[in-house]
């Protein structure tokens, strides 16, 4: 990576959700290991993709990095500051610098607020502008996401999904953040609208020098928008590399299966492609298999994989993989 300045760094980040029983005195009877030891660096100005199937913990990982969930253990270091030890006002203050764009453009905007109030919320929360300047700033933000500034007094339900997602983007940009977690920002949108939002995100990155963590299950879109991509399976990152390296030479058997499962909109290519069809379903994160989490579905698993967790290895060129076999 050019520049190579780390903006966000996680160190064996874990988030386990307790499963409890009892009415007044609650007993913990188990835990969902949504994120189970994630270590990665996000460089300033890059887009890091985090892909995986539903339930693999990618959304939880994003939210834990932003301290929307407090991690069970591990550290999140944002520009030199350990967020996991911050509380109250200092943490609230840090939130100004990191934001999130949500998956569901319908649920992520308060239906009882006008667009102006939605977008200006970060400004009010951090007292960034005077009440007078607020309107100007909101209009400027609307122009930035290419919405008509006349819309400020309308309500979210008057907008289409794509337009709402733009409003969500404007809100995320209001406090001039450096880092934005995009949590499946396009998966709820129509095919023809997805490209509009993706292009907008790319333009904004160029213009404002933003750093993105792009969480998605659409591998084609991730290849398009990201610089580096991490593949997650059952709470762990199994492979991470620069995108062309990862897509053209996937090493981990799960990554290989994932890549081959994505259909290509080209019948000529499709006829020639070999699919790796995985058996069965993703195991429950309450009781992940011992050893390599993927061992239960892995076509090349051997004895060792069922007992011993594979180490996180650097295979050169910034390509990391966690697998005994490759």
């Amino acid at each position: 990576m050019r520049g190579k300045k780390v903006l966000v760094k996680t160190e064996s980040l874990k988030k386990h959700f307790p499963i409890t029983r009892g009415i007044i005195f609650q007993q913990q009877v188990g835990s969902v290991r949504a994120v189970d030891g994630v270590t990665l660096n996000i460089y300033r100005g890059e887009t890091l993709g985090l892909v995986g199937e539903s339930g693999c913990g990618k959304t939880t990982a994003g939210r834990t990095i932003l301290q929307l969930y407090r991690p069970t253990s591990g550290r999140v270091i944002f520009d030199g500051t350990d967020l996991t030890i911050l509380k109250g006002e200092p943490l609230r203050d840090m939130r100004r610098r990191m934001q999130m764009i949500f998956q569901d453009p319908y649920a992520s905007l308060n239906p009882r607020m006008t667009i102006a109030r939605i977008i200006s919320e970060p400004l009010r929360a951090h007292k960034l502008t005077s009440a007078k300047e607020q309107v100007d700033r909101v209009q400027e933000l609307l122009r930035l996401v290419r919405l008509n500034p006349r819309f400020i007094n309308r309500y979210p339900h008057e907008f289409s999904g794509g337009q709402r997602q733009r409003i969500g983007v404007a809100r995320a940009l209001a406090s001039n953040p450096e880092f934005i977690v995009c949590d499946e920002p396009i998966s709820a949108l129509d095919v023809s609208i997805q490209a509009q939002i993706v292009n907008l995100l790319e333009d904004l990155q160029d213009k404002l020098g933003l750093t993105y963590m792009f969480i998605a299950h659409d591998l084609s879109m991730v290849r398009h928008i990201c610089d580096r991509v991490a593949v997650m399976y059952l709470g762990k990152i199994v492979e991470l590399a620069i995108k062309d390296e990862l897509y053209d030479h996937p090493l981990h058997p799960y990554t290989q299966a994932l890549m081959s499962a994505v259909p290509v909109p080209d019948p000529v290519v499709e006829r020639k492609r070999k699919r790796i069809i995985l058996e069965g379903d993703v195991p429950s994160p309450i009781n992940p298999p011992p050893g390599c989490h993927f061992s239960t579905r892995c076509p090349i698993a051997r004895e060792e994989c069922f007992h011993q967790e594979p180490p996180w290895r650097d295979v050169g060129g910034g390509h990391f993989v966690a697998c005994h076999e490759c």
Partner: peptide
Amino acid sequence: EQEFVTAARCIGSRNFSIIFEH
């Protein structure tokens, strides 16, 4: 648990304003 409340927390809004505004 709604996303717009998570969004408000993410923005850094205070509990008071989350309860009374959202």
